[in-house]
Design a protein around this nucleic acid. Structure first.
Length: 577
RNA sequence: GGUCCCGUGGUGUAGCCUGGCCAAACACGCGGCCCUGUCAAGGCCGAGAACGCCGGUUCGAAUCCGGUCGGGACCGCCA
C-alpha cells in the first residue's frame, strides 16, 4: 500500500468530478444518519466530505483511514460554501481503518484553544489542529521566500557551528561540557556574530544564514531560549545598502504572503526621539498617542512631586488621551496598576486631584505641550528618565488597546536609526550599547572625549507594529578607531585579547568594510501569521520556565554521564534555609 | 530577582468577591439507542470532577488565609 501519491483530501475541486480516488487521512468529523454517514476526511491540505452508504466500518474521530471512491458533485443545494472542497464529495465504496485513535485529550477541530499547558504536553496533537499546521506551512514559505531573495542577490548561505565559543554580546550563554577537555565548555551561539565577520575577512562578501541562536535569558511572549535569525553580513556596504536590501525583502514577504504592498523606504527615527515620544525603542505607530517632555514647562513649579523629581535629575512626561475625560476612576486605577507593575511610582492626571498644586499657566502649558484639547485627559509620570519612559511606553500601549486606538490593518515599519554608541551601565559607567565593533559616526569621534553619549553609531533596528524584528550595524574596520573605542570603554588589553582576539587578529590580514543585520524569523512569522505568541510559530517550543512539557526537558542524567564529563552537581540550597 | 493573572469532569467555561441551597452547573466531547443528505447534523438515554497539591481559619471551604507546584503576562534581564 502506498498512499504517498494519493490525491489530497483538501485539494479536490469541482474539476475533479468523476475521478476515482483513493484518499488517506484522519477522520475530522462524523455525521451519522443511520442509513448514510458523512465523514470529513482531513489531511494536511484540508478536508473533504466522504459519503458512506452501504459501507461497513466503525469510524471514530481521528481514526486513520483509507477511502476508495468517486469524486462527485454534491447534490444541488447541499454544497457547503464554508469548505474549500464544498462543491464536491467522495462517494466511498471502500473504507479501511488503518489505525484507531483514542479520544484525544482535546478536540482537534474545535476553534477554542485548550490550555497552553495541555497543548504543549501533547504538542504533536496541537500541531494537528489545522491553524497550527498552517502556521508550520507558513513558516516554511517564509524561509523559502527569504532563501530565494537572498540567492537572487548572490548571497551565500554558510552554516556555522552550534558548538562554539562565547560571543561578544551580552546575554547569558548555554554551555555544553567538553568530555575531552574536562572543565572546559562550549557555548551555544547567541548569534553567529564573530563568525559572520570572519567570513567577510575570508572574502565571501555576501553571507546569509537561517541560523538558530540561543540565549539563556528570561522569556517573554515574543522570546524563546532558542530562536531563528536571518543572519546577514555584507562587505563594502553602507547603511543604505542594508536598508534597501531589507526593505525589498520585507516588501516581497508581505506581497507574497499577505498581498500587501508596503511603502518603501521605511521611515527612520532617532532612538532618543523614539524613547521620548513613544517610551520605547520599538514603538507601535499604528496609533497616534505621543508623549511630551514637561520638564520645560514645569521648570519653576511649586508642585512638590514634580519639583523634587526634576531637581534630582529626573523627568516629567505627559501624554494626552483624546476624549480621556470620560475615563472612569476604576479605569484610571487600572492604569496606575500598570505603572506600578512596571516599577513606576504611580500616575497622575489632569484634570484631577493634582490640579490645585499647579498654576493655571502651568496647566495651560501642559495642555499645549501634550496637544490636549477640551475633553482630553493628560496622563503624567515623574521619575528617573529610563523608568519614566518605560512606564509611559506601557501606559501608551495600554491606553491604545483599551480605547481601541490601534489601526489593526496597518503595517508600520520603521528603522530606529541612528542610535548611539555608548550607554550608561548600572554603576553609571560607559558601556557599549550594541557590541564593541559597532562603527561610530566618524565625525562624532571628534567630541567623543567631551560628550561620549552623543556619539552616534551606524546601528539600526527594524521595527514593525511594536515589535523589534531585527537589528544590526556597520562594523569598525579601522584598527585605530577600534583601539580608541576599546580605550574609551576602559577595557583591559588582556580581556580584549581573550574575548575578541581572533577577530582582531583576522582584521590585520585585510578586512573589508562590512556590516550586517539579523531579522528574527520567529517574529516575522508571528506578524504574517497574525499571532502575538511566539510559541505558535515554533513547532516544539518551551514554556516560560524553559521546560519542554512534551519531552520533559530539561532532565536529570545518570551519574555515569556526569562522571565521564567530570561534573559534580551541587544541589540548590533549600529555600528558606 | 520582582509584580500580576490563572489552575473546577476528556476539553472549554460558570460558580469563588458576598463561605452552608455545590459530592458542583452548562456546552462540546465520550458510551448506548434511533434516524438515508448532513456539514458546529438532530432526537432520546447514560457515564464522567470531592474543585492542582499541602496546611490553616471555621460548626461548615471549590469559595477566606498561608505555603507550594504548574501555566501565562509584564518589570529587571535580553537585540
Amino acid at each position: 500500500m502506498s498512499g504517498f501519491n494519493a490525491p489530497h483530501c483538501g485539494s479536490l475541486r469541482a474539476s475533479d468530478e468523476g475521478r476515482d480516488v483513493e484518499l488517506y487521512g484522519w477522520v475530522a468529523r462524523r455525521r451519522d444518519h443511520g442509513g448514510v454517514t458523512f465523514i470529513d476526511l482531513r489531511d494536511r491540505w484540508g478536508a473533504v466530505q466522504v459519503v458512506l452508504r452501504n459501507v461497513d466500518a466503525e469510524v471514530r474521530l481521528e481514526y486513520v483511514v483509507r477511502v476508495k471512491g468517486k469524486v462527485s458533485r454534491r447534490p444541488a443545494g447541499s454544497e457547503n460554501p464554508k469548505m474549500e472542497t464544498g462543491e464536491v464529495e467522495v462517494v466511498a465504496d471502500e473504507l479501511e481503518v488503518i489505525n484507531v485513535s483514542e479520544t484525544p485529550p482535546f478536540p482537534i477541530e474545535d476553534p477554542e484553544e485548550p490550555d497552553e499547558k495541555t497543548r504543549l504536553e501533547y504538542r504533536y496533537l496541537d500541531l494537528r489542529r489545522p491553524p497550527m499546521t498552517q502556521m508550520l506551512v507558513l513558516r516554511n514559505r517564509v524561509n523559502r521566500i527569504i532563501r530565494d531573495y537572498m540567492e537572487e542577490r548572490e548571497f551565500v548561505e554558510v552554516e556555522t557551528p552550534i558548538l562554539t565559543r562565547s560571543s561578544p554580546s551580552g546575554a547569558r550563554d548555554f554551555l555544553v561540557p567538553s568530555r575531552l577537555h574536562p572543565g572546559s565548555f562550549y557555548a551555544l551561539p547567541q548569534a553567529p556574530q564573530m563568525l559572520k565577520q570572519l567570513l567577510m575577512v575570508s572574502g565571501l562578501m555576501r553571507y546569509y544564514q537561517i541560523a538558530r541562536c540561543f540565549r539563556d535569558e528570561n522569556l517573554r511572549a515574543d522570546r524563546q531560549p532558542e530562536f531563528t535569525q536571518l543572519d546577514v553580513e555584507m562587505s563594502f556596504c553602507d547603511e543604505e545598502d542594508v536598508f534597501s536590501l531589507m526593505e525589498g525583502l520585507f516588501a516581497e514577504l508581505w506581497r507574497e504572503i499577505l498581498g500587501v504592498e508596503l511603502t518603501v523606504p521605511f521611515p527612520r527615527l532617532d532612538i532618543k526621539e523614539s524613547y521620548l515620544r513613544y517610551g520605547s525603542d520599538k514603538p507601535d505607530l499604528r496609533y497616534d498617542l505621543e508623549i511630551a517632555d514637561l520638564g520645560g514647562v514645569l521648570g519653576g513649579t511649586k508642585a512638590e512631586i514634580f519639583r523634587k523629581v526634576l531637581a534630582s535629575g529626573g523627568v516629567v512626561r505627559g501624554m494626552s488621551v483624546p476624549s480621556g475625560k470620560d475615563m472612569s476612576r476604576r479605569e484610571l486605577d487600572e492604569l496606575v496598576t500598570v505603572a506600578k507593575g512596571a516599577g513606576g511610582q504611580g500616575l497622575a492626571w489632569l484634570p484631577g486631584p493634582l490640579d490645585k498644586f499647579l498654576s493655571e499657566e502651568e496647566r495651560d502649558a501642559i495642555s499645549r505641550a501634550t496637544g490636549a484639547r477640551d475633553g482630553d485627559l493628560v496622563l503624567l509620570v515623574a521619575d528617573r528618565r529610563r523608568k519614566a519612559e518605560t512606564v509611559m511606553g506601557l501606559i501608551r500601549q495600554d491606553v491604545a488597546r483599551r480605547r481601541k486606538l490601534v489601526r489593526k490593518d496597518e503595517w508600520k515599519f520603521l528603522w530606529i536609526n541612528p542610535t548611539y554608541l555608548f550607554e550608561e551601565d548600572d554603576q553609571g559607567h560607559l558601556t557599549y550599547a550594541h557590541h564593541p565593533f559597532t562603527r561610530p559616526f566618524a565625525d562624532d569621534m571628534a567630541f567623543v572625549a567631551e560628550r561620549p553619549y552623543d556619539v552616534r553609531a551606524h546601528a539600526y533596528d527594524i521595527v514593525c507594529n511594536g515589535y523589534e524584528l531585527g537589528g544590526g550595524s556597520l562594523r569598525i574596520y579601522d584598527p585605530r578607531m577600534q583601539e580608541q573605542v576599546f580605550q574609551l570603554l576602559g577595557m583591559p588589553l588582556d580581556l580584549i585579547r581573550e574575548r575578541f582576539g581572533t577577530l582582531l587578529e583576522a582584521f590585520t590580514y585585510g578586512v573589508p568594510p562590512h556590516g550586517g543585520i539579523a531579522p528574527g524569523i520567529d517574529r516575522i512569522v508571528m506578524m504574517l501569521g497574525g499571532t502575538d505568541n511566539i510559541r505558535d510559530v515554533i513547532a516544539f517550543p518551551k514554556t516560560q520556565s524553559m521546560s519542554d512539557l512534551m519531552l520533559g526537558a530539561p532532565s536529570e542524567v545518570d551519574s555515569q554521564q556526569l562522571d565521564e564529563l567530570r561534573i559534580r552537581v551541587v544541589p540548590p540550597p533549600k529555600s528558606g534555609s
